[in-house]
Deep mutational scan, measured.
Amino acid sequence: TEYKLVVVGAGGVGKSALTIQLIQNHFVDEYDPTIEDSYRKQVVIDGETCLLDILDTAGQEEYSAMRDQYMRTGEGFLCVFAINNTKSFEDIHQYREQIKRVKDSDDVPMVLVGNKCDLAARTVESRQAQDLARSYGIPYIETSAKTRQGVEDAFYTLVREIRQH
């Protein structure tokens, strides 16, 4: 089974770092803004072998026109913010609204991801993020692309959301 996953969120929150940590098991430290990259990885989730087709997208506003296209083809979405960047957390709402509009559905598989949880300088409390996820009816997972904490959990949870859909 193949799953088309799309990673969305503001610029600099760590979308590529999360994806590369999942696929290649290493942490990319330097920031190089993405336009669009796709990665494929075969994994076993709950005993089922599946192929993850992951689209890593641009957070930069100037590429926002490309969003409709990949939102149409994606089956599930990782909505990523950084726990030390309140603005990126506030941006999640717009991504969710755009996904709902493009998919013409209120019920699209999504996982809210709070990345950079290895950093002490948190400005978005776990509780705020949990409340937001609960209001959307989606899971919330904290990750660190640096330490790998929660990385597999985030992507695998999204696959489970798609399966249950």
Rank of each mutant, 00 (worst) to 15 (best):
D32C: 12
D29N: 01
V113C: 13
V108T: 03
V28W: 01
V113E: 10
Q21V: 08
R148N: 13
L132I: 03
G137H: 03
L112I: 13
Y140M: 12
L52N: 07
Q98C: 00
A82H: 13
L22N: 15
L55F: 07
G150V: 15
Q130K: 12
L51M: 05
Q149D: 10
E142L: 12
D131G: 13
G9I: 00
V108H: 02
Q164I: 06
Y95I: 10
I35F: 13
T123C: 10
Q42V: 02
S105V: 02
G12D: 15
Q164R: 11
R72L: 05
Q128W: 13
S144G: 15
D91C: 11
F81L: 03
Q60D: 15
I45A: 08
Q21K: 13
Q21N: 14
R134Q: 09
E36M: 04
D37Y: 02
R160V: 14
L5V: 02
D68H: 03
D46P: 03
H26D: 07
D32L: 11
T57H: 11
T1C: 03
G150N: 11
S88P: 01
S38M: 00
V28T: 08
E152I: 04
Q94N: 12
V111Q: 06
D91E: 04
F81D: 02
C50W: 12
A154D: 01
D46R: 08
E61Q: 08
S126R: 09
A10C: 07
G11F: 14
C50S: 03
Y136F: 11
P33S: 11
K15P: 00
I92R: 03
Q164F: 12
G150H: 07
G150R: 09
E62Y: 15
R163W: 08
L55A: 10
Q149A: 06
R40H: 03
F77N: 01
D56Y: 01
I23N: 15
S126D: 12
D37E: 03
F89A: 07
F81I: 02
G150I: 14
G74T: 08
T86R: 04
F89C: 02
V43T: 02
K41W: 05
D153P: 08
Q164W: 06
C50V: 02
R127G: 08
I83D: 09
L55N: 14
G9W: 00
Y156M: 10
E48Y: 05
V6F: 13
E75R: 04
Q60R: 15
I35A: 07
R160H: 12
V124Q: 11
I92T: 04
E90D: 01
L132W: 13
T143L: 15
E36G: 00
L22D: 08
A120Q: 11
I92D: 00
D104T: 05
K103P: 03
